Simulated scan of single mutants.
Amino acid sequence: MLIERKILSDFSKLVRENRNQNFQSNLKVGVDLGTSNIVISVLDENNNPIAGMTKESKVVKDGIVVDFIGAINVLKIMKAKLEDTLSVKLINAATAIPPGIIKGNIKCISNVVEGAGFEVINIVDEPTAASTVLNIKNGAVVDVGGGTTGISILKNGEVIYTGDEPTGGIHMSLVIAGYYGCSIEEAETIKKDKNRESEVFEIVRPVVEKMASIVKGFLKDYEVHEIYVVGGAASFEGFEEVFEKFIGIKTIKTNESLFVTPLGIAMNCN
């Protein structure tokens, strides 16, 4: 997994340092409309990170677009900034959905991306996108997002099951807000404060155990020997240890877990 870790580190630097790499080939674009963040990832045809951008947003809730115009406007601004930085027009894009959402919501997500000026050429479910980055052939990929916990189970490189339940990062924030008697916005800030990570993790541990319980339920009819966790809500140190102890299956978390799925979406832009 060393190659995958390097790709994630490279992409994270591009996003956080607001820069891009030189390129001489066709570009692959991924648009991740998350509950907490919208991420655009840009790769070259060999899946090397070229540029990226992330923006906090509340336009999507549990895989459902709740602010259609707002989502389009945010995405348009991000697209324009990346095009200006790269001096190239971004045309085709892939996007992703939580597994198990209804067809109408899938179309709505696609319409947002197309409304921002992209042509959607592929739609993939989020945990499957993550498995592309991690190069997983067997096991379960769990994507812990802002609003949901999704799973894809793979056997010999094929997805044999997907599932999704509404427990994610926002539920951590609700618990934090209740504990400290503060607003959701303040709770979000506390949750992301690295200096308070160990303190906060003990507060949200019951939510993490709830997520593990959801995953354990998904796995009850399948033989799985490894679980891979990704997603921004899984960023806490020790997150994977709670999963492994609760479920009893080896659980692995890579670096830069927030960016695994966005990169995987772009890799499926073909």
Results as ranks from 00 to 15, higher is better:
182 C>R: 02
174 L>H: 14
147 G>V: 11
37 N>T: 09
131 S>C: 09
63 G>C: 05
113 V>M: 00
87 S>C: 10
54 T>S: 01
43 L>K: 03
92 N>C: 02
139 G>C: 04
190 I>N: 08
159 V>P: 07
196 R>K: 15
59 V>F: 06
34 G>D: 01
1 M>A: 14
159 V>H: 01
143 D>L: 01
27 L>C: 11
23 F>Y: 13
121 I>S: 07
60 V>D: 02
31 V>N: 04
105 N>P: 03
34 G>N: 11
131 S>E: 04
21 Q>I: 01
267 M>P: 13
126 E>D: 12
148 T>C: 07
112 V>N: 02
104 G>R: 11
144 V>K: 03
216 K>L: 11
48 N>E: 10
19 R>P: 07
110 S>D: 04
102 I>G: 00
148 T>R: 07
152 S>C: 13
80 A>F: 08
82 L>A: 12
259 F>E: 10
130 A>F: 03
8 L>I: 12
117 G>N: 09
49 P>D: 06
76 K>F: 04
248 G>F: 05
95 T>C: 09
64 I>K: 14
70 G>D: 06
255 N>K: 15
138 N>Y: 05
256 E>S: 09
143 D>M: 05
135 N>L: 10
208 V>E: 00
141 V>N: 00
20 N>L: 03
71 A>C: 07
11 F>Y: 15
208 V>N: 02
247 I>G: 06
